[in-house]
């Protein structure tokens, strides 16, 4: 074999090995379970808030009635793929019954009860609401929808769920079963990987879109964000006296957002990238009045925290409050999964 062919062959084999390891290594469920608990709670809260004005947003005489929303969802060729059962609900009583059912599903997903079924139902309900509520949505709903999608795919109830607890009670007493033990699965890995990639897509295109604006280059973008009275929840306009700081924060934000998809994978930069994500999204939550959006972005970023870290941190948090059954049982080792590691092997 010629050296050139050998080099190409080695490269192709490396790519295949990396692909195989990245997608097809089973993963423990702790990270996805935490995403389920936090994401499920966010879905529940989001839909509880719709309850406050349910008929005004989803009823027959709503702000944007079903026919209008169907038209808004059409493209220039008249095609509409944004399905929703809520287009067809005219009766307030039926609307409320379905809505209460939806809230119960989200609550069951959060606590991990019948997770396989409730995760699929939660996805269908979330998408149906999003498609019917065109014109009143923002980043929170986009995040809710894609988190619900990947929760449906993975074994999100594999740990820290009522399903897991009930299953452990059904096992014979003679077995040395611990509620802390659980199994790695392929579909959990697929869900986490897809969550990770989707986060990268969101940040990459968020960064690219910002790079087309002048204010992200001249360092004034953050000022114009803080100066939007309709968003403002904490007055940060005093920063106008520190223009260099505003400019620095602007540049750091757009740099981090654009290069997130590269910096999040190596072990060296992942913690820094995640710390930056928390900083930016807490800032959005506190200063720009979007607590839910800031929180849901942080939930999305959880996908990059290793399952063993999630397991250990949660155990450390709950230890003062409760004696964890089976604490002394050694948990199985969990592989740290990193594309960078995979690529170097």
């Amino acid at each position: 074999m010629s050296p050139l062919l050998k080099a190409v062959s080695d490269w192709a084999h490396g790519v295949l090995r990396g692909w195989n390891r990245f997608w097809f290594t089973p993963s423990m469920p702790h990270t996805l379970a935490l995403v389920r608990i936090c994401g499920g709670a966010m879905l529940l809260y989001t839909h509880v808030v719709w309850s406050l004005n349910l008929n005004a947003f989803l009823g027959r005489e709503s702000w944007l009635n079903a026919n209008t929303v169907a038209l808004l969802n059409q493209d220039a060729q008249g095609r509409n793929y944004a399905w929703s059962y809520l287009y067809y609900i005219d009766s307030p009583a039926l609307l409320w019954a379905l809505h209460i059912g939806a809230l119960i599903v989200f609550a069951m997903l959060t606590v991990g009860l019948f997770t396989r079924i409730t995760s699929i139902l939660a996805w269908a309900i979330t998408i149906a609401y999003c498609n019917r509520l065109t014109g009143t949505l923002f980043g929170l709903d986009q995040m809710n929808a894609f988190i619900a999608t990947y929760l449906m795919l993975g074994d999100s109830g594999g740990v820290w769920s009522l399903d897991h607890w009930l299953a452990s009670r059904r096992l014979p007493l003679t077995t040395h079963h611990s509620p802390l033990t659980c199994s790695p699965t392929l579909r959990t890995n697929l869900a986490i990987r897809l969550l990770q990639i989707h986060m990268c897509v969101i940040y990459l295109f968020g960064g690219i879109a910002k790079m087309r604006g002048d204010t992200w280059w001249d360092g004034t973008a953050l000022w114009y964000a803080f100066a939007q009275l309709e968003y403002q929840s904490l007055d940060m306009t005093w920063l106008v006296h520190y223009r260099w700081l505003l400019a620095l924060l602007t540049h750091v934000t757009v740099f981090w957002e654009t290069f997130y998809c590269f910096l999040i994978w190596p072990k060296l930069t992942r913690p820094l990238c995640l710390a930056m994500a928390v900083g930016v999204h807490v800032g959005i939550a506190v200063c720009l009045g979007m607590k839910t959006f800031g929180l849901v972005m942080i939930i999305g970023n959880l996908a990059f925290v290793y399952p063993e870290t999630v397991r250990d941190v949660v155990a450390w948090i709950v230890r003062p409050f409760m004696r964890v059954p089976g604490e002394k049982v050694a948990a199985p080792p969990i592989k740290r999964q990193s594309l960078a590691v995979a690529a170097t092997r």
């Binding site: 879109a209 604006g213 114009y224």
Partner: peptide, 8 residues
């Protein structure tokens, strides 16, 4: 995904 973009 163009949050606060191209300019706020």
């Amino acid at each position: 995904y163009a949050f606060f973009a191209p300019d706020p």
